[in-house]
């Protein structure tokens, strides 16, 4: 059992993903608090060069194999389980991302380690780890304590500033880990499918009026569309609107949609689940209209209106126009 802190580096199309640096920042804190090492794990094929960017870590462990070229839930999990079983770190941090959701639970079962998901913070307290998760759609924080040592924590995006994870301590030592059997392959990567173009690119808009479940029906969309036009912006939405096929997927803001940083983000009838917040929290000015005074969106908005959007939006549209 080592006391080291391990972080699973995530990369896509040959580049490290932002959340990797957030994990490194948090991992650095955990390692420094006990004077231990921070190790970054890198799985892929021909990815060793990325190790140089992981300077916040003391060492980088690389597992390379053609089967690891693109993310693969089966092969990546097999590699991760083997490294963790061999090295037995005190903590393994994984992003609560699409890839991380496959990895964290597989690691927990495969290496028989506790897992706490959706963490916004993890720290040492009296020699034990304490993880704080954001659950119930962001309405509650839950503190978890662990039994025994060697734990897996999946961190939500934005849990820790990425800047800290970009602070380099020099070129980390990169070490190869012999590729273990990667399974099957019962899961085979076929292709990447890029989003369809042709629609408004909401990432380039200064003003977004974004609509959520509170709109209740596709028939009510013209109400917010009119507001978007009045303020000279584009219409965006949270996930349920897109899943209901009321708006194209290109308009979806959030974890699996796009991340936006407009000058104004006007959230209408959006409760603010963590997956949505991830995509818009960096907007310069966030104004939220929601009927639920406890909606998590008000914890991220700069200005909030508790009320019925059907009363407020039409009046707002009229007054903006005049």
């Amino acid at each position: 059992m080592s006391q080291d802190v391990y972080v699973v580096a995530e990369h896509f199309k040959g580049k490290l993903v932002e959340v990797t640096f957030e994990l490194l920042g948090k991992g650095r804190e955990l390692a420094d608090a006990r004077g231990e090492n921070l190790i970054a794990l890198l799985f892929g094929h021909g990815v060793k060069n990325l190790g140089a960017e992981l300077g916040a870590a003391d060492r980088v462990i690389v597992v390379e194999h053609p089967q690891l070229e693109s993310f693969n839930p089966e092969a990546y999990s097999a590699a991760l389980v083997e490294v963790v079983k061999t090295k037995r770190p005190a903590v393994t941090l994984v992003a609560n991302s699409s890839m991380g959701m496959d990895l964290a639970a597989s690691l927990s079962v495969g290496a028989n380690l506790p897992l706490v998901a959706y963490a916004v913070d993890v720290k040492w307290e009296d020699g034990s780890l304490l993880a704080t998760s954001q659950l119930y759609g962001g309405k509650l924080y839950v503190e978890s304590q662990f039994v025994g040592a060697g734990v897996v924590v999946s961190l939500l995006a934005g849990a820790s500033p990425a800047d800290k994870g970009r602070t380099t301590r020099g070129l980390p030592q990169v070490e190869d880990f012999a590729t273990p059997p990667l399974g099957g392959p019962k899961v085979r990567f076929k292709q990447l499918i890029e989003p369809e173009g042709g629609d408004v690119d909401i990432t380039t808009q200064d003003v977004l009026v974004s609509v959520g479940r509170g709109i209740q029906s596709a028939d009510n969309l013209p109400l917010v569309q009119a507001l978007a036009e009045a303020v000279g912006g584009a219409l965006a939405s949270s996930r349920p609107i897109v899943d209901s096929k009321w708006l194209p997927r290109t308009r979806q803001v959030g974890k699996s949609g796009v991340k936006v940083k407009p000058k104004l983000y006007l959230a209408v009838g959006i409760s603010g689940a963590p997956e949505h917040i991830e995509g818009m929290k960096d907007a310069e000015l966030i104004i939220a209209i929601n009927s639920d005074p406890n909606a998590p969106i008000f914890d991220y908005a700069h200005y909030g209106v508790v009320g019925d959007l059907f009363d407020i939006v039409p009046v707002l549209t009229e007054r903006v126009k005049s």
Binding site: R188, F189, K190, Q191, L192, E194, P195, V258
Partner: peptide, 10 residues
Amino acid sequence: YSGGVMAEFE
């Protein structure tokens, strides 16, 4: 994945 990209697996 994020950004509207999807991966296809068999």
